[in-house]
Design a protein around this nucleic acid. Structure first.
Lengths: 348, 348
DNA sequence: TTGTAAGCGTTATCAT
DNA sequence: ATGATAACGCTTACAA
């Protein structure tokens, strides 16, 4: 099939180990031989076989990353953070989708394990708690990024945004600018972040002495249609809320759209706050106030954690001595409130 | 390190080949032995080593997909089309980013080749013409999806949207609803699609007997900021255009945003048409009229083409007899005009 | 029905 | 400075 070091060896009249050494720039090989072999390799379009190499080296120099879907704008930025850090350490990222289905997620991880990735990062995991036992003994470090299931046990490494704090931040902002009747559209109610952001919302209300009213709190999906549906519920509520905190920006954008169609003047008739700060938030009309997650940085952190964990294992790592990670590590980062037009005063 | 068939063999008191056969459900193995081995494998958390297997089998059951960046919403849908088709044929997708840099693209393909992917799909390639020679002899089929460079030579396989026709469609629509002074913001001028969409624009103008005026045609980047900049140019133009056709939806969305800030009433003061139909197009205010690319289907087609090409190679394929592909195949699909609010009459 | 041995393309450990 | 040889984990003739 493909040209191998043996093919080169044959043509160069040397042994295949000489070729291997020449190509890895070993000082043992005579300069003349080396350059001759390298020229030959180039001419023959030689490409080293990463599988064979990894088999004997004991590592693949790859990280597996499980995402719900690449179509999610939150995912895209996180992946870029991971990829940037990975390639800076000469690691290759292998992406796998879970479609937000626990079964698919498991299949994806299993597939990555078969590929012998050196480490796995799972975003928005539905089965986070399983990994402690599951992969702990297979010695493949697993890092959770915004775990959506209950927190794992003993063997757990994760990076996540402080959802509760973020929910609090968003709601407090609405209270600060004068709102008292504040609605909330949640995300998928089984997911941890939905619960936490809701908890933050309640915390902020309580802090301001505003009674929690279940009548203006609805379940959602995290998708634009949930926002559209929520608007109808909101219009029917009595008294009608003057502000609404949405589980995420996708929901908020759907709501913005529906509010526009309903002829509401935003933010005058209704103030809206989202969560995530996806690229489109700034482009929406009105531009969306939101709690920004440091998505890129979170991806970086997760990858850094994976790198550290890999160093603890069989083969030593190359880089400078990374801090030793022991037992459980849960890296919690804070969201940042970004005030735009959808709350606050209208431009022009 | 990881548990291998030899480890299982040792514990089961059989040879490693018996284990191999048992796990691949060979009819040669006694049922009792088989189930005993399989149970053991499960208990030991055995995971087959895809690298070792692929080494002897001669194929990895993977496709490499090169994209500019996962952050591009067009990319996301295309990748999903590819992935769906791939996994239906039990292929795994390995994603690599090029950042729209020819050098990175080459590096990505080189990396995928080292991983011995069975086939490569390159989206928005900057160096499409190179692949004919480059990988033709390495026997790895390459499929181009919306090639951004000049068309490749003898050994070329591609799927692409008819950019010229799409540009024509968009412009004709604006003409049909009564516009005569129509501006255009292009994409990166070196890329083929920019040129083609512009050509379509000119074609439509010519068809309606409208003179082409370079004064209302500007270069862009394909990003929202290009749309924002274009609005200023548009406002300064004399006579001021009443409509504008944008290279893509990202550009159009940026322009929508700027127009909103400038206090323009859309589509009354300015009609806008984009290209791509990204998910956000329908959510924008006003909802964006655009030329929809069948992104998912294009991904499917590219993957189907890759599957067909792989069948022609060393190892026979599994599925039903796919049509034989010979020499050059260029699959051109037509975009579809989706009329929304940003052209045509205002809702309510 | 099972075991033995060869080989996939590397790197690494011995010799020479 | 270079060549044999073993090993990585697997599949697959070929033997038994």
């Amino acid at each position: 099939m493909s040209v191998s070091i043996k093919d080169i060896a044959r043509l160069a009249g040397v042994s295949h180990s000489t070729v291997s050494r020449a190509l890895s720039d070993s000082p043992l090989i005579r300069a003349e031989t080396k350059s001759r072999i390298r020229r030959l390799a180039r001419e023959m379009c030689y490409s080293p076989d990463a599988r064979a190499r990894s088999l004997v080296m004991g590592r693949t120099q790859t990280v597996g990353v499980v995402v719900t879907t690449v179509a999610d704008p939150w995912v895209a930025e996180v992946v870029q953070g991971i990829e940037t850090t990975a390639s800076a350490h000469s690691y290759t990222v292998i992406l796998a989708s879970s479609d937000d289905e626990p079964e698919h997620e498991l299949a994806a991880v299993e597939m990555l394990r078969s590929m012998r990735v050196d480490s796995v990062i799972v975003t928005s995991s539905r089965i986070g708690a399983l990994y402690g036992e599951y992969l702990g003994r297979s010695h493949v470090p697993v890092v959770l990024l915004n775990n959506h299931s209950e927190q794992g046990g003993a063997h757990s490494f994760s990076v996540r945004v402080d959802d509760r704090h973020g929910g609090c931040l968003a709601t407090e902002h609405l209270i600060t600018i004068g709102h008292r009747r504040i609605a909330h559209v949640g995300g998928p109610s089984a997911h941890l972040p939905s619960l936490e952001r809701l908890a933050g919302y309640r915390l902020a209300l309580a802090g301001a002495g505003i009674a929690f009213d279940p009548a203006v709190v609805w379940d959602g999906t995290g998708l634009p249609d949930a926002g559209e549906r929520a608007l109808n519920l909101l219009l029917a509520a009595d008294p009608r809320p003057t502000a609404i905190f949405c589980y995420n920006d996708m929901t908020a954008v759907g709501l913005l759209r529906a509010a526009h169609d309903a002829g509401l003047a935003l933010p005058g008739d209704l103030a809206v706050v989202g969560f995530d700060d996806i690229p489109f938030a700034a482009l929406a009309c009105p531009a969306l106030t939101t709690v920004a997650q440091p998505k890129f940085a979170m991806g970086q952190q997760a990858m850094d954690m994976a790198l550290t964990l890999m160093c603890r294992r069989p083969h030593e790592c190359d880089g400078a001595g990374a801090p030793q990670v022991t037992g459980v590590t849960d890296n919690v980062v804070q969201g940042r409130l970004v005030v735009r037009e959808s709350s606050g005063t209208r431009r022009r």
